[in-house]
Design a protein around this nucleic acid. Structure first.
Lengths: 226, 226
DNA sequence: TGGGCTTGCTGACCGACGGTCGACAGCGAT
DNA sequence: ATCGCTGTCGACCGTCGGTCAGCAAGCCCA
């Protein structure tokens, strides 16, 4: 009885007492003990599916725990917070994407960009729903830094490719490339959500045109046409 | 006593009783009664400042109410929800921006785009912090639809301007224009947060280049150079 | 077979959020 | 003076992300 009262009034402002697992005849849930690494893998896998289906905001930690058949504190035992869990799920999904889009460093930079872009668009074409959900979670503060990091690295990579050959690395080129990366997301969103009848190749052509035009407008240029 | 118990256990699942305003000798706060419209104006004004300073997520309704010197229920009396309050604040801010960027319909479409874009960039240059906060709130679900609406209308406007003269209105052109709108935000973010040393005119040149390139890549084109 | 020991795992809890309920009180009309 | 309108309030709800401290599965050693 005092338990209920203690729960009611947080007067003391800190934990007052502890009752123990089983009250009122409700038996604790049966559970399977798993190896640390195995549980972790299972959680990342399940979270990846769920985040891909519901996005970041629409999915609560309680729900993830329930869907994975475990308790919420266990989820927090494996991941320090929702952001970290999302990061793990994102990284797991990004590995496949990353492997597919890593350019061949022996090709000219413009070709590398074109090839990466096409691989990226192909991947999106096969994972439309999940990509849309991800994009829509983009500015959620907890998620933003993750994506910002990836974008910053990509911007630098493209600028590095441009620089030696004769492209520019002024502030305008940097703004152009970052803007271009955003334009990819915006165009892909129109493509996916607007159900536009476009092949990845058509998207690639349009986007490469945009990059070339922006760089030209910024006083730089792509070293060679793709 | 039973009231406290009722608070503890939401068994009945609905309000059970009411105690009355002043308990335990805490006097209700003194307040000033304002005209409906005046209060509303005050709240929108204060909310606009606060959202511009803290963004959408980092600002709670409780905080807004506190900063405005009123209670939370009163805030909800004037606005049905946080999203609506944000919309009101956004609209109030957007009126100034909208007035500044409305193009002269008697000019050729390409000039209209160029002029609107430059006005937009000038405005951003003067409201850097608030624009950054807004952009960073962009995908917050509650806010998204608002911005999506504006973007959709802008896309259609640009496509309409393109169409009669000889530009295209295929799916590729639509994706190109929507992507271009995103690229504006991305480039502006790099401009603002990266403290890039660029004038609005340089940004304009770069962005118009991107639009032209993307449209060319999509098989359309800007009717006339700006 | 039965004790310990490790550590994977649990229910109950916290503060803050967005949002709602029904009573109170400022103030012009009478 | 008092009455009604309605602007305003404190207390409350359900859910969120996150935390606390004890329970117990399953291996080890007798």
């Amino acid at each position: 009885m005092w338990v209920i009262l203690a729960r009611c009034r947080p007067v003391v402002n800190r934990r007052v007492g502890w009752v123990g697992g089983t009250i009122a005849g409700v038996p604790p849930r049966a559970y399977r003990r798993l190896e640390n690494e195995e549980r972790r893998r299972q959680l990342v896998e399940r979270a990846t599916e769920l985040f891909g289906e519901y996005g970041y905001e629409e999915l609560s930690m309680s729900r993830i725990a329930r869907e994975a058949g475990i308790s919420k504190p266990l989820l927090y035992h494996y991941f320090p917070g929702k952001r970290a869990l999302f990061a793990a799920a994102l990284q797991s999904a990004a590995e496949e994407l990353g492997a597919a889009t890593t350019p061949d460093p022996s090709r000219p930079p413009a070709e590398q960009v074109a090839a990466s872009l096409l691989a990226f668009l192909d991947w999106i074409d096969r994972h439309r729903a999940a990509y849309g959900k991800l994009l829509r979670s983009l500015a959620v503060a907890e998620v933003r830094e993750l994506i910002d990091d990836v974008r910053d690295r990509t911007v630098q990579q493209i600028l590095d490719g441009l620089n030696p050959q004769g492209g520019g690395d002024g502030p305008a080129a940097r703004a152009a490339v970052q803007g271009w990366l955003w334009s990819i997301d915006g165009a892909c969103l129109a493509w996916i959500e607007g159900d536009l009848d476009l092949t990845p190749q058509q998207m690639q052509g349009m986007l490469l045109g945009g990059l070339g035009g922006a760089l030209t407008g910024a006083g730089a240029s792509l070293p060679a046409p793709a």
